[in-house]
Amino acid sequence: METPPPVDIPEPWEAVVPPPPAPRRRRAAIVALSVLLALALGAGGALTWYLLEVNAAWQEQSADWQALAEQHGAELAQTRSELDATRSELAAVSDQLVTAQERITVLADEKARLGDESAVQQQLVDYQQRVSAAAGQVATALATCIDGQQQLIGYLEGAEAERYDPVQLATRREEVESYCRRARDANDDLQTELNR
């Protein structure tokens, strides 16, 4: 069995007493704390100052944006007003265009109808000219025929009828018949024109 080692019991007059804090170390701690506090206060102040600056900048920007928005709002209102006026004007011009188109169509129709009437009138004039020419030919041929026939009758019925050569009389008769044939042909042409 092992015996415990002897304990060294201190003497009462040798008891350990903590040394009192040195005034220099305490002062250092206070200084350090003060510096830290000052730094914290400085940082806090700087932060506050920065935040105030940021706040002011944002407020200024907000005001600028609002001014810009109001400017564009005014421009938009002006543009809308001009757009409404332009639309109204466009509607009026469109109405005028429709009216003008209608008028153009009517005038084109009137011109075409006048052209039709003019063409018809021209055809009538041409027809009347042809009829007149045919009638003139009939009259001329008929007059020649009648003159010839009257002359021939004079030759045949006169007291001196026996003086004329029968051959010449026959020739004259054929000539008169030719005149009268022309008159009949001209009359046929006239009737053809009249029947058109």
Partner: peptide, 24 residues
């Protein structure tokens, strides 16, 4: 020197916050 220390620190912080792009 001890009294100027907080002021220097504050200016430094403001400078850092305001001047250094991206720091905030």
């Amino acid at each position: 020197r001890r009294r100027a220390a907080p002021l220097v620190g504050g200016v430094l912080c403001v400078t850092l916050l305001a001047g250094c792009a991206g720091l905030p």
